[in-house]
Design a protein around this nucleic acid. Structure first.
Length: 513
RNA sequence: GGCCGGGUGGCGAAGUGGUCUAACGCUGAGGUCUGCAAAACCUCCAUUCGUGGGUUCAAAUCCCACCCCGGCCUCCA
């Protein structure tokens, strides 16, 4: 039977706490516990948000591929939090509710579904547990009371605040020294705060301006929990303290996670930050800078699909860059990855035609139903019969993966295997199947044609295309090449690429304008 | 203003002291195939790593200066 723990090269991961790549050891040899900061559901996720979950998914897949069992929790922030600048005082959920003229709970529900739907399209595995902030309000209040008893809080008219000087090494995760920060430079200063870095644990509802849709009674009056509280409460509740890995976007390193750590420390009475590893993915950027929900205009997965981009092309784009590097985005770039993915799928399909059907071909698909189990057994089924030469590829794959998840280095290995002159088709497929359990590109079950997505702007329907194609076939049979070429040109202008002799004989081209 | 990152071919992106005349992908060029194309396959495409100095037997990789870009300090993945 498979032994718990890590197989292959020791996994090394960058730890934001020490700012070094360190060998990873789970606290419990049999299980790694991960908490990922999830989205605030007041809006569609933009593709920059989604990059974060492709990253945590890759982390989780890598751990299970290397033999670990993983318990992965992602939270949903459905409590509103302060909007910025001119919207001071309102919160994002309330604002979205007004804009869409819908109940705030409907807003939360709608965007939670949309978010989960995006992840499914990206082939991100479901976490072991989704945890929702509003399901934990009472526990947050209890935690706030514990913090109060610990003597790290003080009350102001606006709510209950955390005194960040009361915990050791506040802000050590951040790279910004406290002295350099100019509080109030861009956001209104809260009257009475003892230290610039102090933050709200409980936000009391304003006296004026009517009742908020989302508010709860508490020892500090009606209001809502501070944003940082939910992650402390939910991560400890489901994963214990300390647990193994806490992930989030790189922006969380400076404020949110520092505050979370302070709460954890005060709550447990220990100096420990609450997680052994803090990992942060870098931003997706375009020429104008990082993508941001609050900027208004942003690209969503749905908007990419409407252009004729398949979600898996976006996943491949994410994998083509290391998670700690900024990733440059443009429609052209992701379309390029789509071409790459098409070629990969074509090559895999060609291999499948050469290999006798077997149960093992189903394996990569099955992990979609796993809630974090080790992949040791499926791997052994795939890899046990491998030739030494094929084994080599698995080994180099393992080596690159073990080095802080070097996904950009993984992809060339895929190309090498496919193009290898000596490996048997079955060995190639088995190696690719194993690697794809980490990459999550659905390489064995996606066909090239699946990537052909009709752009919303396409002037022709599929039926119209088929009809024109038929006419063209007739013209070709009759050797009326002028007519045939004219139809091809017409289809071309409509965003359709023809491939005579292929099945299917045409596909949509993404619309990049 | 303070603090962090980063600048590698047309584009994305690996590489952080020698195996780098710089992986891989996209684009492009040529070829095979084709009525012609497309798809597929094959071949080719940076003596150079923002600029200028320095250290070293050896630098894209280390040091200094300068220029440019981005992020954070405000909700944010």
């Amino acid at each position: 039977m498979t032994n718990p723990g890590t197989q292959g090269k020791p996994l090394r991961l960058f730890n934001s706490l020490t700012r070094k790549v360190e060998e990873f050891h789970p606290m419990n040899r049999a299980e790694t516990r991960i908490y990922s900061c999830g989205p605030t559901v007041y809006n569609d996720a933009h593709i920059g948000n989604l990059r974060a979950y492709v990253f945590t998914d890759t982390l989780r897949r890598a751990l299970t591929w290397k033999g670990q069992t993983v318990k992965h929790v992602i939270n949903i922030t459905d409590v509103g939090h302060l909007t910025s600048d001119q919207d001071e005082g309102e919160d994002k959920m309330e604002l979205a509710s007004q804009k869409m003229a819908r109940d705030i709970w409907q807003i939360a529900d709608h965007f939670t579904r949309a978010f989960k739907d995006d992840l499914r399209k990206l082939n991100v595995l479901r976490p072991s547990l989704w945890s929702t902030a509003t399901d934990h309000i009472q526990e947050m209040i209890a935690c706030a009371e514990r913090l109060q008893r610990a003597g790290v809080t003080y009350e102001l008219p606006t709510g209950l605040y955390f005194d960040t000087t009361k915990v050791p090494n506040y802000g050590s995760l951040s790279l910004t020294p406290m002295e350099g920060q100019s509080e109030g430079a861009r956001v209104e200063r809260i009257e009475g705060k003892r230290n610039p870095s102090d933050f709200a644990i409980w936000r009391r509802s304003p006296e004026t301006g009517g009742k908020r849709q989302m508010e709860w009674l508490s020892p500090w009056g009606a209001g809502a929990p501070g944003w940082h509280l939910e992650c402390s409460v939910m991560s400890m509740k489901y994963l214990g303290s300390p647990f193994d890995i806490h992930t989030g976007g790189i922006d969380h390193r400076e404020i949110h996670h520092c505050n979370e750590i302070a709460q954890n420390q005060a709550c447990t009475g220990a100096d420990h930050s609450g997680a052994n590893w803090w990992m942060h993915n870098n931003f997706l950027v375009d020429r104008s800078g990082k993508m941001s929900k609050s900027k208004g205009e942003f690209a969503t997965l749905t908007s990419l699909i409407k252009r004729g981009i398949h979600p898996l092309a976006f996943r491949l784009l994410c994998l083509s860059t290391h998670y700690r590097s900024e990733l440059e985005f443009s429609p052209e770039i992701v379309a390029g990855q789509q071409v790459r993915l098409k070629r990969l799928l074509g090559a895999v399909t060609a291999l499948r035609l050469k290999v006798a059907p077997g149960e093992w071909l189903r394996i990569p698909r099955e992990i979609a139903y796993s809630s974090g189990a080790s992949l040791s057994y499926p791997r052994s089924v795939l890899e046990n019969t491998l030739s030494p030469e094929a084994q080599q590829f698995v080994q180099s794959f393992d080596g690159e993966l073990a080095e802080d998840l070097m996904t950009p280095r993984l992809l060339p290995i895929l190309d090498e295997v496919l193009g290898h002159a000596k490996l048997s088709p079955e060995d190639k497929l088995r190696v690719i199947a194993s690697m794809d359990m980490v990459l999550g590109l659905n390489l064995l079950d996606t066909r090239r044609v699946d990537l052909s997505v009709r752009p919303e702007s396409a002037p022709l329907s599929e039926q119209e295309v088929e009809a024109l194609l038929l006419q063209r076939q007739e013209a070709r049979k009759a050797k009326d090449f002028a007519r045939a070429d004219q139809i091809r040109e017409q289809l071309n202008l409509a965003g359709i690429d023809l491939m005579d002799g292929q099945q299917p004989a045409w596909e949509w081209r993404p619309s990049l304008a």
